[in-house]
């Protein structure tokens, strides 16, 4: 069980979640963040911290985003840890809420 970063983070990457995570379980790629499901301790702090509602409890993950479970598990093993907030991506506002962003995920 864990929390999962969903599609809306792609090309936005506000990073406000990483600061509130008590166990530092966020990992960073070029245009997306992921949660390591084994390290997440289900505190839920990151959910309200995300300004664009991109983080879900595994149980509440929309059906059309279920593949993000595997994406979070896989990429958190490869990407480096992120613990400090940084600037959101430059076009974050423009990308918020756009559908089908998975095509833009850079690994």
């Amino acid at each position: 069980m864990a929390f999962v970063v969903g599609e809306n983070c792609i090309n936005c990457k506000h990073t406000s979640c990483v600061e509130v995570c008590p166990v530092n379980c966020f990992y960073e790629g070029p245009n997306f963040l992921v949660i390591n499901p084994d390290e997440c301790i289900d505190c839920e702090e990151c959910v309200p911290a995300c300004p664009i509602g991109a983080i879900y409890s595994e149980d509440d993950l929309p059906e059309d985003q279920e593949h993000f479970l595997d994406i979070n598990a896989e990429l958190s093993d490869i990407w480096p840890q992120i613990t400090e907030v940084k600037e959101a991506l430059p076009d974050a506002d423009k990308w918020d809420g756009i559908e089908g962003k998975l095509n833009y995920l850079e690994r």
């Binding site: 069980m1 530092n24 390591n36 084994d38 301790i41 289900d42 149980d59």
Partner: peptide, 15 residues
């Protein structure tokens, strides 16, 4: 140094 911990947590009855 931080370490990784595999607690194998199961949360909720849904599982």
């Amino acid at each position: 140094e931080n370490a990784k911990y595999d607690r194998g947590i199961i949360t909720g009855l849904k599982k």
